[in-house]
Amino acid sequence: MTAFACALLEWFDRHGRHDLPWQHPRDAYRVWLSEIMLQQTQVATVVPYFQRFVTRLPTLSELAAADEDTVLALWSGLGYYRRARFLHRAAQLCVEQHAGELPRDFDALAALPGIGRSTAGAILAQAHGLRFPILDGNVKRVLTRYHGIVGHPGEREVEKRLWQHADAHTPAERIADYTQAIMDLGATVCVRTRPLCGVCPLREGCVAHRDHLTTQLPTPKPSKAIPTRSTMMLILRDENGRVMLQRRGAQGVWSGLWSLPEAEDSDSAWREAQRRARIDDAQALTPFMHVFSHYRLHIQPLLFDGAAPALAIADNGDLRWCAIADLPALGLPAPVRTLLMALPEPAEP
């Protein structure tokens, strides 16, 4: 075992995280679910979602048998909803092709939707103790600083070097603990800004610490201006307090989720609303901004109260009238759910 791994495991025994919900029990299904949820999401945010998810769908087979709305509803608020759809499809493929279990073969596991090289390695290492390195965002940061690697970690050649280091440092024993340890170190000590180098078990061999490069490494991704887009969201509410929802298409953000009809401007908003219901008036609610990874979306909600459902578009595959109390059972984007839950009470007739 390398000095790197020894120091890291000694630190982990005293300071690592040993009480995360997916560690008890640490089976393949729970590890897989946690790894997918933790992609681009912090542990503190993931824990309640994980607990709710496994309470409702405690096994891979139950996940595979669930309908998409159930899966997306459980995921709602975590963002990056493609992860949930890949998770669902991978579970179905495991039932169809792998006797209802996540395969222990690396290539078969990595071939499933949403499971790449690092996630496959994390599942096999933590659930089965098999020696596979990982390279998530936290691990990239630790290795980049420790070895003084210049260049954005997403660049092909830089990532190749990081994989080589990840493999060299991964020990032959205590694989599950080592895997958790290096993720923990990146999440709690070797953090993005103001890393806690004074308590880091790897500081003696760390190039970034030695050369005062912790603020420069990892090399940032070249920045791009984030554009702002605008949309109007149409809230058609009938006399019973139900709102009209529309399932989004398979492409673009929030794909497959239930959301609100949208329009580009006031004129098209009225036309869209009149296509779906008989309406009299509209109330402009407080606009707000939602930030995606690649653009900002300025949202202007328009509330059409007392909308009368049009018979021609009674509930079908992509449109439905939904009571506010029924929203938790559906997969909705978090800002849309927040908007609908905070609607003003209907005016007295």
Rank of each mutant, 00 (worst) to 15 (best):
A263H: 06
G114K: 00
T219E: 07
A66C: 04
E10P: 02
W254R: 06
E348R: 14
A263D: 00
N138W: 05
E62F: 06
V191C: 09
R56Y: 06
T193L: 10
M37V: 11
D69Y: 03
C206F: 15
E62C: 12
F12G: 05
A176K: 10
R194M: 08
G16F: 08
A307S: 14
L8C: 12
T228A: 15
A111Q: 09
Q164H: 07
S266F: 13
L63P: 12
S76T: 02
T119A: 04
F86L: 04
A28V: 03
L260D: 04
D19L: 08
R85P: 06
P333S: 06
R56C: 14
R145N: 11
P171S: 00
G151S: 03
H24P: 04
P333W: 04
W22Q: 04
G129L: 11
A122M: 02
R85T: 12
H298E: 12
V31Y: 00
T219S: 14
L196F: 07
D105E: 11
S230A: 11
I324G: 01
E157G: 11
T219D: 03
H165I: 08
G249K: 10
V54L: 05
L319P: 02
F4P: 09
I235H: 09
D280S: 14
C190L: 02
R248L: 13
R194K: 14
I299C: 09
A7G: 13
G256E: 07
Q97R: 14
L319K: 09
Q180Y: 14
R192G: 08
Y29V: 04
L130V: 02
T231F: 01
A181I: 03
G249D: 01
A125S: 15
I175P: 01
L340N: 09
W32A: 00
H169L: 11
D265K: 04
S34A: 15
P103E: 02
R248D: 01
L311E: 11
H209R: 13
S293I: 10
A44T: 15
L124I: 08
D69F: 09
